[in-house]
Design a protein around this nucleic acid. Structure first.
Lengths: 145, 145
DNA sequence: TAAACAATGATACAATCATACAATAAATCA
DNA sequence: TGATTTATTGTATGATTGTATCATTGTTTA
């Protein structure tokens, strides 16, 4: 038993892929407030058993939601509702996080025994060589049908 | 309270395994001299409780560091800093770690949606305003379960 | 019809957690 | 003092959870 039990319904004849049905319905539940920040979702196997489908299909739905930052999937731990930041809070978050990240970086560099100047040099070196392994980043999903 | 309290920060969303995050950060603290030969690390259970994870995950991190001869874990006794790296290996590790730290920083910044230029600006701003000593140390949202 | 593609399933795997255990130290008691 | 118990420490083993990879199935398309 969990907060999703009985709340996901699949239509095997609708033509809409199962993983999209799941993702869409979870999204609606979050937007509707039935699932709150930090709530744990059923495991992929639990939900799959309940819906009588393969757990990889649930996993695919969860992956979509994870990429949209609606949920947080953590191997070995489980799946949890993730905060969906508004555009504004996102902007705010960005500023704060950049400062935190930067301070953290400087602290760690200092711990290493390096000077900030060396750090900036290193950053510029990396940037100039330009082979910063790129993170692909979200392609997002649209639930238009 | 111990010499590690508050100095290990986990990112549950980064995708980097928790045990690697712990091992890496402990290594940095040793390299930075904040942990010295003979210092006792928190017990696996202490650190696990603080980080709200299972103590076996901490144990795995400690095992890595033990295999690297950086710490000495002794059943029934505890975990201690084992050997202080030589100046030479320290120098080597510093170079590698500085590059790792810097790349990591750039990746995270990019993930935030900021440009490297903005990051460098922020770093310079922090450096010009002075003190790194008082970092607010807020890790934002956590998904305790 | 055959090739290409998308959705789903099967299998093996990696990270984390839960539980029971073993080694050491500290406390207790005869 | 010396044996025994208790608490604390790290370890071993297996279960749980999500992921990667490829196979299978059905549909679309050339």
């Amino acid at each position: 038993m969990n907060r999703l039990t009985g709340k996901i319904h699949l239509d095997f004849h609708s033509g809409e892929p199962l993983y999209l049905q799941i993702a869409r319905q979870v999204q609606l539940l979050v937007l509707g407030g039935e699932l709150a920040l930090g709530d744990q979702l059923p495991t992929v196997r639990e939900l799959a058993t309940e819906l009588r489908i393969n757990f990889n299909t649930v996993s695919r739905a969860y992956r979509l939601l994870h990429e949209d930052r609606l949920i947080s999937t953590q191997r070995g731990r489980g799946t949890y509702i993730w905060e969906q930041p508004t555009e504004e809070s996102l902007h705010q978050l960005r500023k704060i996080s950049l400062e935190e990240l930067s301070r953290d970086y400087l602290v760690q560099v200092t711990r290493l025994g390096c000077t900030p100047a060396e750090a900036l040099d290193e950053l510029n070196r990396i940037l100039s060589t330009g082979d910063l392994t790129d993170t692909p980043e979200d392609d997002g999903i649209s639930f238009d049908s």
